[in-house]
Simulated scan of single mutants.
Amino acid sequence: MSTNTASPLPPLEPPAPRGTNRGTTGPSPRPGIAMLPGYSRSAGKASVRWIASSNELPVPPSRAVQDAVAAAAADANRYPSLAGDNLVAAVAGRLGLEPGQVVAGAGSLALLQLLLTTYTGSGDEVIYAWRSYEAYPILVGVTGAAAVEVPLTSATRHDLNSMAAAITTATRAVIVCSPNNPTGTTIDHEELMDFLNRVPAQVLVILDEAYREFSLTEHDSTHLLKKYANLAVLRTFSKAYGLAGLRAGYLAASQDIAANLRRAAPPFPLSRVAEAAAIAAWNEPDATAQTISRIVDERRYLSAQLRSRGIEVPESGGNFVWIPAGDRALELEAACLAQSVSVRAFDREGVRITLGEHGATTAVLAAVDSMGAAVHTTSGTLCTLT
């Protein structure tokens, strides 16, 4: 006769009174989530005259875009299109793509997250340049994949040779940011093609072109989709189209990649308002070109003024200029705030200045002149600010 020696089950706890918490801790996130870096905030943005810290346009949307927003908002009781269908059709038509190659989303950042969560996960590696867009390590970390950061060259450009050499059997994706945020440096068409030829076909190449319009390039990288089935191109309406507050963007890729993303994506990626605004802005290429020209002129002016002071700023293809201030980045940020302009400082690296109002540019130059000290140049030497 056997004897059961197992301990009896503990008695059930009585239900907790309403409004009380049974324990002191709640659910825990997946391993690694708590260690993710936070997205930085620019100092003093709410108390300055000029905002040069967020890569926004300094002007509101056109009257046509505002009218489209108002009309869409009047029907806010109705769901938007299932997949941003009208915007997809408009984008595909102009770019000469099939609608099945275009995916719409709430900005290129949301589409990047969709790409990474669809194609990468635990045990995989994702390669990107560093310093680059600060959301990359956050989004890669969320997927559970391992980030492989390849340092920029001394000229703050992508080191594509080293990035290609870093690819292993565990690599599932490579992110290329051109123009690079925050340094503004670009990758030319021949460099990109050479890199794509070196990446294995099973590795996804994500080309982040959030600032493409400001680079004034003659080549449209979406034409490469015919040759490279592992390429996905990200673009946004937040920058050149001035819709940062509405969150709209698109992705162009092979039909297979796009179909997989649509399977993984929740429905209704764009609000009615965001889709209507994006279509209206898309249909104003002349107005967009005029805005871009104004920003590029301001970029040339600020870059020339900084160089005349002995500061070697890299050639920028974005709506911003990078000052390689090194250990004095936070000091330069504080000097700018004292001139009532917010900028984005990256501690011990540099300061990114968004182009827009000429008054902001003048304020930044006054801040630079007020320091009377030295900053790091792209060659790694030192130069005086005054």
Rank of each mutant, 00 (worst) to 15 (best):
V341Q: 01
E125W: 01
N55H: 08
T156N: 12
A164E: 12
D85I: 00
W322G: 02
V233I: 15
R235P: 00
N260L: 03
V103N: 09
A374C: 01
A304C: 04
I127T: 14
S42C: 11
S108D: 06
V150F: 11
L330S: 12
A201W: 08
L82S: 09
G249K: 01
G249H: 01
D256G: 08
A135I: 14
T120K: 07
V126C: 10
Y136V: 14
Q339S: 08
I206S: 03
S238R: 07
A334V: 01
C336V: 03
E190S: 15
A287T: 12
V343E: 12
A164L: 05
T291R: 11
A287F: 06
S53P: 02
N180C: 08
G184H: 07
T381V: 13
L87T: 08
T20Y: 04
V174H: 11
K239R: 05
Y79M: 03
T156C: 10
V375A: 04
P267K: 03
R30D: 11
S132P: 09
A281I: 10
I323A: 06
A129D: 01
R247H: 13
S62Y: 14
Y250R: 01
A276R: 12
N319F: 06
V351T: 04
L225A: 04
A155H: 14
A104W: 03
S238L: 13
L224C: 05
N86P: 07
G372N: 14
A367C: 07
L12M: 11
R352H: 03
G350V: 15
R299W: 05
L234H: 09
L251C: 00
A6G: 06
V142E: 15
I187E: 02
R18I: 13
E331G: 02
T291P: 01
M1T: 03
T25N: 03
A76C: 07
G23V: 00
V126T: 10
P269A: 09
L332Y: 01
Y128W: 06
H376C: 07
P266N: 09
A334Q: 15
S132T: 11
L87W: 04
E298Y: 02
S7T: 00
I353L: 11
D256L: 04
G245V: 03
L302E: 05
R30N: 07
S293I: 01
L204A: 04
M35A: 08
L115H: 12
D188I: 02
L365M: 15
T185W: 09
M1A: 04
E315K: 10
T168D: 04
A345G: 13
S370T: 05
L36Y: 07
K239C: 01
T120V: 15
A338S: 14
S340E: 15
T186M: 02
P269N: 06
R63T: 10
A74D: 13
G44R: 03
Y133K: 03
N77E: 13
T25V: 09
G32I: 13
L231D: 02
V102P: 08
A104L: 04
R328H: 12
L207F: 03
A252Y: 11
A259S: 15
T378G: 09
W282M: 03
A265W: 02
T117A: 05
V368A: 05
T377W: 12
I353Q: 05
A259V: 05
E284F: 10
R94E: 14
S370W: 02
G84I: 06
A277H: 06
R212G: 02
S303I: 06
G184C: 01
N181C: 06
K239E: 00
F195R: 11
G84W: 06
V91R: 11
V103I: 14
R30P: 09
Y119H: 15
A64C: 07
A258T: 00
